[in-house]
């Protein structure tokens, strides 16, 4: 009954589109993260930004950027046009702006959760603001933000599917194309859904790994503390 040939063929076709989905995700994740820190720093502007980008659908933000920006001559003749003309770039831009709003909110909550006493202890040692931020505030904040951040990562993966609406050939775009040609909705859907679920699973595992490495638990054996490697550059890059 089950057409394995079709299923595997579809699965292969969809997997071929995986790099696009991953590209969207990773670009938006990184850009959004950086943007979020920036938004947090500009606190006056932050509330409005977060409100606007969390209060409206991503789809309309995407269409605004992809279709709307091209209307203006000033943009079409600018140095950015080669980028803004591309559907992929527009999608990454829209995704970044949107995820930055959610991430900024998460970071804001995490910042409030940092125990003020530990910050005072740093000040009492004579730490400068930069040192305080780097050595005390940021590490503690990141640990608090991790669970919510993993949820946001999954939401971002799902959001990449919208790029298909502006002619980006990601997994959903290819799936839609196959459905319209073959009308075998159920099978294609199952393949595509499986791919996204696997992606989410991997992300959840990665976060669990990160959480385990960052959670202060003393290991019983007496080896030179792995904690001595704490907050090494590798870890800081992950978040």
């Amino acid at each position: 009954m089950i057409d394995f040939a079709f299923l595997s063929d579809t699965f292969l076709k969809l997997s071929a589109a995986l790099p696009v989905t991953l590209g969207l995700f990773i670009s938006a994740f990184l850009c959004g993260g950086v943007l979020a820190v920036g938004i947090l720093a500009l606190s006056a502007f932050a509330r409005g930004y977060i409100l606007v980008f969390r209060g409206s659908p991503l789809m309309i933000q995407l269409f605004l950027i992809y279709y709307g920006l091209g209307q203006f001559g000033v943009i079409r003749h600018s140095v950015f046009w080669p980028f803004l003309r591309e559907p992929f770039t527009c999608a990454v831009l829209a995704l970044s702006l949107c995820t930055a709003a959610y991430t900024a909110e998460i970071l804001r909550g995490a910042l409030l959760a940092v125990p003020p006493g530990q910050v005072e202890a740093g000040m009492a040692c004579g730490m400068s603001r930069g040192l305080l931020l780097r050595r005390i505030i940021a590490p503690v904040m990141l640990r608090y933000a991790l669970p919510a951040y993993s949820t946001e990562a999954i939401l971002l993966v799902k959001s990449t599917a919208l790029a298909s609406l502006v002619t980006v050939w990601d997994v959903t775009g290819v799936a839609q194309q196959i459905i319209q040609r073959t009308y075998r909705t159920m099978e294609v859907f199952l393949c595509a859904a499986a791919i996204y679920l696997i992606l989410n699973f991997i992300i959840v595992q990665l976060y669990a790994l990160l959480e385990r490495r960052l959670t202060p638990v003393h290991k019983a054996e007496k080896k030179p503390s792995p904690a001595a490697k704490r907050l090494s550059p590798e870890e800081n890059k992950h978040v």
């Binding site: 006493g117 202890a121 004579g126 400068s128 590490p139 503690v140 904690a227 001595a228 907050l231």
Partner: peptide
């Protein structure tokens, strides 16, 4: 201020050890 603070040591009522660092750190 930072310089002078580094010449004063403070011990707090609620200890305020940095939770993400070991004792030695």
């Amino acid at each position: 201020i930072e310089r002078l603070r580094s010449r004063l040591g403070m011990v707090f009522q609620s200890f305020n050890l940095w939770s993400h660092l070991t004792v030695l750190q």
